[in-house]
């Protein structure tokens, strides 16, 4: 049902006066991706609502990272559609274009600029004109500095501003990458295992950070750490063999016999 309303809104073109009942930020419809005959995503249909935090869990090979690749343009779907904000068809956009319309992505392995300082990492991430012409003449102004110091406070890296990012601890690198995403001011944040390799204390603080973003930004978190998922108190989607197995709050999902079977093996 939501599917048709999306298509209609799109079909209407730029007619924004049309009341949109569906308030989705991201709509994946019937996505299929195959690698050499292996179906990484199998007719996957999923909707994420605006300003919602959702967790995605699933065993290895369930298609979680492939799903993120399809959304961010790294992998093209064999069939199906991805709509952002109901009207933007992501399958026609390149990775940088998708980033600019407002989707930020954190990789499984922290991916930051190791030879740049923490400050520079955040500076490069900031939402500004990203064309060569602008970068050639850009100056670090007060606005940039303010935004960076706000972000540094959120990610607890205030004392490491001038440090080279490669020297940070693993958990700090994870935070820096999250900070870079926040500097991008995306409408939708995709986080692939954001607490992997963090200490318990760091994990808890990350959970607090995400909880504070709830309601301000749309977040999709892929995670294996069940304690962390529990802390986020969000709706959970279980992926299995490239499609949705079930959906609900964590307790319900964990009690689902199909989920137990998938996780414990056949």
């Amino acid at each position: 049902m939501s599917d048709t309303s999306v298509n209609m809104a799109h079909g209407m073109g730029e007619n924004l006066s049309e009341p949109i009942k569906n308030n989705s930020i991201l709509q994946l419809s019937n996505i299929t991706v195959s690698f050499d005959g292996f179906r990484a995503l199998n007719d996957l249909t999923l909707t994420f609502q605006v300003n919602e935090l959702r967790c995605i869990i699933g065993p290895n090979g369930a298609g979680k990272t492939t799903m993120m690749d399809v959304i961010t343009g790294k992998t093209r779907a064999d069939s199906g559609t991805v709509f952002f904000n109901q009207t933007i068809d992501l399958s026609n956009l390149s990775e940088p274009e998708i980033a600019r319309v407002g989707i930020g992505r954190k990789f499984q392995k922290p991916t930051i600029f190791e030879n740049h300082t923490v400050f520079e990492n955040l500076e490069l991430a900031m939402k500004v004109d990203k064309r060569v012409r602008h970068s050639l003449f850009a100056v670090v102004d007060d606005l940039t500095r303010d935004r960076i110091s706000d972000t540094l406070r959120l990610i607890h890296l205030g004392e490491h501003t001038e440090q080279v990012a490669g020297r940070l601890s693993h958990g700090q690198k994870q935070w820096l990458e999250i900070g870079m995403l926040l500097m991008q001011e995306p409408q939708l944040l995709l986080l692939d295992e954001p607490v992997a390799g963090m200490t318990d204390d760091e994990t808890e603080r990350t959970g607090e950070l995400f909880n504070s973003l709830k309601g301000k930004q749309s977040l999709v978190v892929v995670e294996h750490d069940m304690a962390f998922v529990e802390q986020l108190k969000s709706n959970v989607i279980v992926l299995h063999e490239g499609s949705v197995l079930c959906e609900g709050d964590l307790a319900t999902v964990q009690a689902n016999p199909k989920v137990i079977e998938v996780y414990l093996g056949r």
């Binding site: 961010t72 940088p96 980033a99 992505r105 991916t111 490069l124 990203k130 870079m180």
Partner: peptide, 11 residues
């Protein structure tokens, strides 16, 4: 150093 990250930042 990390071309993928640069792309996902919108450059």
């Amino acid at each position: 150093d990390a071309e993928m990250r640069v792309m996902f930042l919108g450059y």
